[in-house]
Computed example of a mutant assay.
Amino acid sequence: MTKEKGRWSKLDLDSGVEDATLLILEWLGEQGVGASIRVDAERMREGRPAWTFSASGGPLSVGMRADGASAAECMGRALLRLREAGLVVPF
Results as ranks from 00 to 15, higher is better:
Glu26Arg: 14
Glu42Leu: 01
Arg45Met: 03
Arg65Tyr: 07
Trp8Ile: 13
Leu80Gln: 10
Val89Gly: 03
Leu60Lys: 01
Ala20Glu: 08
Ala20Ser: 13
Gly63Cys: 15
Gln31Arg: 10
Gly86Gln: 11
Val33Thr: 00
Arg81Pro: 06
Ala69Arg: 04
Ala55Val: 04
Arg7Tyr: 15
Glu42Val: 02
Thr52Asp: 01
Cys74Val: 02
Gly47Met: 07
Ala71Glu: 07
Trp27Ile: 02
Pro90Lys: 02
Ala85Thr: 09
Leu11Pro: 06
Met64Pro: 01
Leu82Tyr: 01
Val89Cys: 08
Ala50Thr: 04
Lys10Glu: 10
Leu23Tyr: 10
Ser36Gly: 10
Met75Lys: 01
Glu18Ser: 10
Leu87Ser: 03
Trp27Ser: 00
Pro59Gly: 04
Val33Gly: 01
Met44Val: 09
Leu11Asn: 11
Met64Thr: 05
Arg43His: 07
Asp40Asn: 07
Arg65Cys: 09
Ala78Phe: 05
Pro59Leu: 06
Gly57His: 03
Asp14Gln: 11
Gly47His: 05
Leu22Met: 09
Ala66Lys: 05
Lys10Phe: 12
Leu22Ile: 09
Gly29Tyr: 00
Gly47Pro: 07
Gly32Lys: 00
Glu4Cys: 15
Ala41Cys: 08
Val33Asp: 06
Met1Pro: 11
Gly6Tyr: 10
Ser15Cys: 14
Leu28Asp: 01
Ala85Ser: 13
Ser9Trp: 14
Leu28Lys: 00
Gly6Ser: 11
Gly58Pro: 01
Ala50Asn: 02
Pro59Gln: 07
Lys5Met: 13
Lys10Val: 10
Arg77Leu: 09
Ala55Arg: 01
Gly32Pro: 05
Gly63Ala: 12
Trp27Lys: 00
Asp67Glu: 14
Arg38Asn: 09
Glu26Val: 14
Trp51Arg: 03
Val89Tyr: 05
Leu25Cys: 02
Leu79Ser: 04
Gly29Gln: 03
Arg65Asp: 11
Arg83Phe: 12
Thr21Lys: 08
Arg81His: 11
Leu28Cys: 01
Ser61Pro: 05
Gly58Cys: 03
Asp19Asn: 11
Met75Asn: 02
Ala55Thr: 02
Gly34Val: 12
Pro49Ile: 04
Glu46Asp: 14
Met44Arg: 13
Leu25His: 00
Glu84Asp: 10
Ala71Asn: 03
Arg43Cys: 09
Thr2Ile: 15
Met64Ala: 03
Glu4Leu: 09
Met64Leu: 14
Ser54Asn: 12
Ser36Pro: 07
Gly16Cys: 13
Leu23Cys: 12
Leu25Trp: 00
Arg65Gln: 13
Trp8Pro: 15
Met44Pro: 08
Glu30Phe: 06
Gly63Asn: 08
Leu13Trp: 05
Glu42Trp: 04
Ala85Cys: 10
Leu13Ser: 13
Ala72Ser: 10
Arg7Leu: 12
Gly58Asn: 01
Glu26Ala: 15
Ala35Gln: 05
Arg83Trp: 12
Gly47Phe: 07
Gly29Pro: 02
Arg43Phe: 07
Gly63Glu: 11
Met44Trp: 10
Ala66Tyr: 00
Gly29Ala: 07
